[in-house]
Design a protein around this nucleic acid. Structure first.
Lengths: 185, 185
DNA sequence: CCCCAATGTCACATTTCTGAGAAATTAATC
DNA sequence: GATTAATTTCTCAGAAATGTGACATTGGGG
């Protein structure tokens, strides 16, 4: 039960901060259905909450991505699973990406969260290059672009779902359609 | 000169708010290379600045998109020009989209800005349906998804450029490659 | 029924953000 | 070089956000 509330606050905070970095904590508390006072019982201050978010993201998101890549099966279906995994992470994935690519963020490989992001990023690039060597992914685009595009499609899918612009059942189907073709598959 | 500063503040504000809605005005002023006091001389308060941003966006972005659609030439190249126009609008386009799709935003067709957004949105959908009828765009995806995807690709291209993840000369090329194929062209 | 852990309520000090006045400074124009 | 417009600097008061302490309330488990 205690973990329940704490986790709910973190999940809410990720969604809120992903949308608005400087949103007041009151907003997070409200959406998490607790008082600001309760929020502060679990997290001393804003930065501690941010840290918790970052850690949670690292754990869930990074692990989900790694799991998809570790999948048995051919490269192509691994790529597909990777996309689905990221979409399932939703705001978490979006925030993961945003956190480590913001102007203010100074990257330190010594920081566990940065290291995890970097590892995921590197592995992704490597995987794409591998797919390009197999002539599965087009060489008209760079691996860096494929990564950006991947993140973009995930964001699009998550937002479209949230806005109700696509039926739930179509979300992943459309995302994979556009992503796979968009990288020349 | 007076217009210079005012416009610079608006441009900066759009970029800053696009990244962080609740960013303090100090941040906007700093990036616009003026004092917060100067900012307040042009804009009474935050909401007036926001309004100015919204109007500026409507003007530049909406017009650029309309111009691309009014182009002579075949449908396909119009679509391509539309994408390039949106990418050229950069943060403005992103913010246009964000403003009118945020949870807090309550849409009123009577509001000029909302009306402009709605008009652009409708025209886009109509155009896509037209392309689908001509069998240029795949019918596997809905027009709504194509719109979301379009915005997503624009965002991706703008961010990738800003982050230096792609060479400037490749930005539009990659974006069109991924977008066009991503909708089944 | 009582206890205890989780949460809520309220009150408060502190900090940051906001908006505006007045005078000083800079820059361009004549 | 005097004049004027634009901007900065300094100041301040009020608003909003933040963080905390003391105490009340609630809702299971013993």
């Amino acid at each position: 039960m205690i973990q329940d509330t704490k986790q709910r606050i973190v999940d809410t905070a990720i969604a809120v901060f992903n949308d608005d970095q400087s949103a007041p904590l009151e907003k997070v508390a409200e959406k998490a259905l607790v008082t600001r006072r309760t929020l502060h019982r679990y997290f001393k201050d804003r930065s501690e909450l941010l840290t918790a978010c970052s850690k949670d993201i690292r754990k869930r998101c990074s692990e989900a991505m790694a799991a998809a890549l570790d999948n048995p099966g051919d490269s192509l279906s691994r790529l597909e699973q990777l996309l689905y995994a990221a979409i399932d992470c939703g705001a978490k994935y979006a925030f993961f990406h945003k956190l480590h690519n913001s102007d203010t963020h100074d990257h330190h490989s010594t920081n566990d969260d940065c290291a995890a992001y970097e590892a995921m990023y590197r592995r992704f690039l490597q995987f794409v290059v591998h797919l390009q060597d197999q002539a599965i992914v087009s060489k008209h685009v760079t691996a860096e672009w494929v990564y950006c595009f991947f993140s973009g499609v995930v964001n699009t899918a998550v937002k479209a779902d949230h806005a109700g612009a696509v039926a739930k059942m179509n979300q992943k189907q459309f995302a994979w359609f556009s992503f796979s073709r968009g990288i020349g598959i």
